[in-house]
Design a protein around this nucleic acid. Sequence first.
DNA 1: TAGTTACGTAAGACTCTGCTAACATATGTG
DNA 2: CACATATGTTAGCAGAGTCTTACGTAACTA
Lengths: 107, 107
Amino acid sequence: MCMDALLRAIAESKRRDIIRLTWARELAAAEIADYFPDVTRSAISQHLSVLKGSGILHERRDGTRRLYRVNRGEIVKLRAFLESFWSDGLERFHDLDETIEASGTDA
Amino acid sequence: MCMDALLRAIAESKRRDIIRLTWARELAAAEIADYFPDVTRSAISQHLSVLKGSGILHERRDGTRRLYRVNRGEIVKLRAFLESFWSDGLERFHDLDETIEASGTDA
DNA sequence: TAGTTACGTAAGACTCTGCTAACATATGTG
DNA sequence: CACATATGTTAGCAGAGTCTTACGTAACTA
């Protein structure tokens, strides 16, 4: 449920590029958009919304500008989930039957 | 491009469950479908197509049955990509300008 | 206040996705 | 051959995603 959103947010090269851009420095929307000459500023704004919505990006306002920066905590969560997906989920697959019956929607 | 497909394939809880199920044992389509009482066999068949299309699942035929198993090599690729995304891509973000100019589509 | 800058938002086009229901195909079984 | 079994495929639908164009808005500036 929550992981679906995070994974979908990452499953897009432009959004991954945005994550890279805003990993270590805060950038304004226009500065980010400048890195993508082939798409509209509007398209980038919508990608920013998706990233913000999934929790990956943090937004701070400064005058007219909106500054974006990666919320590393969320990345850590995602990494941890995948880590346990690779190891726990896959190595100890025997637990699966219970897992599915218990959740049904997500894991 | 290729990573988008892999990541999108994973960004779905049912498909992640299928991956868990077929990680260490080969399972027939119907056996997999039995784990999902709430969706049609057809829906599962389509999920299997997505997973097969992305390279994550390998299909083997045996009589009428089709047996599926995780293609671990593809998982390893995905893991490696993410690993370098977390570390290289994010820590050494300074290289980004060239990266984007060079590829534009994916990384 | 008028104009500019930096953004988001709304609407529409087009595509993709996940799903069901119905149909097609292939392979065993009597 | 007729039938059941195991599975894919197609049509169709509702909803989501990506993109553009056009418009709205908030905040500086002269």
